[in-house]
């Protein structure tokens, strides 16, 4: 089973990279782009056929390592 994981800074936490990209988009003429948030995308294989078990494992991975939940939030899908 493949896990597709997105980690982003929590809402309300300043994302300086997002701001810089927003300014760059603005100077390129994309005046309607706003609230750019930069994050990480990770893919990994879980050798587990039971979806609930795989999900519990991926959640644990996110909590323990892949995201720092003080500043980041995560979401994932299993395919």
């Amino acid at each position: 089973m493949k896990a597709k994981i997105h980690v982003t800074l929590k809402q309300g936490i300043l994302d300086p990279q997002g701001k810089a990209i927003e300014h760059a988009l603005d100077s390129l003429g994309f005046k309607n782009a706003a609230n750019v948030r930069v994050g990480k995308y990770m893919e990994l294989d879980v050798s587990e056929t039971d979806k609930a078990k795989a999900e519990a494992q991926v959640k644990s991975m996110c909590e323990k390592l892949l995201a720092n939940t003080i500043i980041e939030e995560y979401r994932y899908e299993l395919v």
């Binding site: 936490i13 300043l14 300086p16 990279q17 810089a20 500043i71």
Partner: peptide, 16 residues
């Protein structure tokens, strides 16, 4: 911080 021996976390510098 990451080890939890001190509270909080580090973000990228405001200036990048």
């Amino acid at each position: 911080l990451e080890a939890g021996l001190l509270p909080g976390a580090m973000l990228r510098n405001r200036s990048l």
